[in-house]
Design a protein around this nucleic acid. Structure first.
Length: 317
DNA sequence: CGTTTTTGACCGGCGC
DNA sequence: GCGCCGGTCAAAAACG
């Protein structure tokens, strides 16, 4: 990557002249998401969640743009506060108030046991007894109770590197082919113990130069001091304000937008689309510009504004 | 040799 | 009930 291009990196997009249609929540889940009752913030096209960032410590390159898509499950109070904080809106965020997430297990996360229970899954089919061993989730997960996801946050980055450094340490735990795309999707988990944050990385099949990264959950620990030899200070500052459950002065370094951080590999960030299996059409800003370049494969799902977005402005212990 | 990646199997949800 | 699909597990391999 040339030096000159570094300036272009990270087009800090976030404008407010575009809005998502939002909220149709065409999702057909058995249970209606609890936040459906107070998602007006997302149904209001004039509402801009991300703008609050700009009003605070987020510094941004003047000429850059960054597009991010999120879906939120904010609570009324939170929405209100956020909205309040939002003064000037120069942030573009697509949102959707459907989703299968709730704050119930916010930090806990059932991820591990959920599968652990099934961990007894005999390696391959060794169980002579036969399929019966097909284990039944002993997990307390009651029927009808849907597994809940943590909030997700996604963005698109123009990059030659798939997995961009973000200051945290990740372990890849899976890779799957993406429907209608020649590029696979990789699944990563934060390596810190007890931390359940997950990350998904895939390359857009429509524009292979773009990488779509999706974060799910919030880190419950500080950014690793060292990241395999490399200084990750700058990187750490990028997501930390979003990823901490319990923000503290120490835990929340002054954020600086990805600019320097991704500078080495990334060029531009574009809007990440919001889709889910029920929606064949992306929920995105009604910008004709987007229409033609939106993939029709379920790339991003269940985008939600992470609660960490709120904690910055609405943190009560 | 501890950690991470690879990769096919497995799981649970969902549509038909 | 069956097949598809997104996501996860986990044994083995690769890596440092």
């Amino acid at each position: 990557m040339s030096d000159e291009s570094k300036d272009l990196f990270y087009h800090y997009l976030f404008r407010d002249n575009q809005h998502l249609e939002s909220g149709t929540g065409s999702r057909s889940y058995n249970e209606k998401p609890p936040y459906n009752n107070y998602s007006q913030g997302f149904d209001d096209p004039s509402y801009n969640y991300m703008s609050s960032f700009n009003d605070h410590q987020w510094s941004r390159p003047s000429s850059s743009q960054v597009f991010a898509s999120v879906e939120s499950n904010l609570k009324p109070r939170e929405v209100g506060d956020l909205g309040h904080a939002a003064g000037s809106s120069d942030v573009l965020v697509t949102a959707n108030s459907s989703m299968s997430s709730s704050s119930t297990e916010a930090g806990a996360e059932e991820d591990s046991d959920h599968h652990k229970s099934s961990k007894d899954r005999q390696p391959k089919e060794l169980e002579d007894g036969g399929e019966s061993s097909k284990k039944v989730p002993s997990k307390a997960k009651k029927k009808g109770e849907k597994k809940q996801r943590d909030p997700r946050f996604a963005f698109m980055t123009k990059s030659e590197v798939d997995h961009l450094e973000d200051g945290y340490r990740w372990r890849k735990y899976g890779q799957k082919a993406v429907k209608n795309s020649p590029y696979p999707r990789s699944y990563y988990r934060c390596t810190t113990q007890k931390c359940t944050v997950k990350k998904r990385v895939e390359r857009s099949y429509q524009d292979p130069t773009i990488v779509i990264t999706t974060y799910e959950g919030q880190h419950n620990h500080p950014i690793p001091a060292t990241l395999r030899g490399t200084s990750n200070t700058a990187a750490a500052a990028i997501f930390s304000p979003y990823m901490f459950t319990q923000p503290t002065a120490a835990a929340r370094p002054v954020p600086t937008f990805p600019q320097h951080y991704f500078a080495a590999h990334a060029q531009i960030m574009q809007p990440a689309q919001i889709m889910n299996s029920q929606q064949q059409n992306p929920v995105l800003p009604n910008s004709p510009h987007h229409d033609h370049q939106l993939p029709d494969c379920g790339l991003l799902q269940d985008m939600i504004i992470p609660s960490m977005f709120l904690e910055q402005y609405n943190y009560d212990p």
